[in-house]
Nucleic acid binder design. Sequence first.
DNA 1: AAATATCCGCATAAAATTATCCGGTATTGC
DNA 2: GCAATACCGGATAATTTTATGCGGATATTT
Lengths: 123, 123
Amino acid sequence: MYKKKTPTQIFCGLHLFKELLNGKWKLMLIYYVYKEYRRPSQLQKIIPNSDRRVLDKQLNELVLHGFMRKQVFNTKVPKVEYELTDLGKSLIPVILNLEKWGEEHRPDLEIVLKADPKFIDIV
Amino acid sequence: MYKKKTPTQIFCGLHLFKELLNGKWKLMLIYYVYKEYRRPSQLQKIIPNSDRRVLDKQLNELVLHGFMRKQVFNTKVPKVEYELTDLGKSLIPVILNLEKWGEEHRPDLEIVLKADPKFIDIV
DNA sequence: AAATATCCGCATAAAATTATCCGGTATTGC
DNA sequence: GCAATACCGGATAATTTTATGCGGATATTT
């Protein structure tokens, strides 16, 4: 398993957030589980251009870190569902706030992104 | 200059936020500039264990992306000051919200971090 | 029988970010 | 003169994250 080589600093709340929730799809996964897309296959469909293995990894971490619970149903066709823990639910207002900020400033931000040659193509 | 090789997706506000503000110290830099630590040397002092060149790079990006302005004073000893743009200021409530979430959940989050062998040592 | 749907996991490659190693100018204070 | 402060920047190394290439199982639908 991969281990970090650089000491992790958590002297402020921003770091705590960042260390645990920085994954490419993590906030979106939490949001969609909240919105009742609870099953891996549903999540893979609702999140475009995401790879199964990447989502899985992030879901596993979210479970490991206590933001979600994973329920496995041993039905004939295996079924899996995720649900938010209280800690996970506590993030919903934060996520909505971030989302709101992004959408409110989308016009400006899109200009900025398109002006930066680093972002070659934007979808 | 480095260019991304993977198309950047911005179909939701969360992505917009993430693409532009994911840098290790970016939110903290915005916060401290807001708190009147405007000069590079001040920022380098107030942010422990940060490297000058990394902070510089992030500051340059924040300017490039319109969150800050950089003012250069051609005094005998060169002086530089950063200040937030309106776009930068619009992030303050978001940052405070993230910080608040982190601090409110610090006890839980520290346990989680310490339980994860990935984070070998935490400062 | 074949296609589709449900799920899982390891090992490695590639990409992206962060850290470090060099280098530099000019002024102030002792 | 010499140390300290203020500032800047390119090139490369190291770390961390994300993507992909292989593999597997069982059950339902067409």
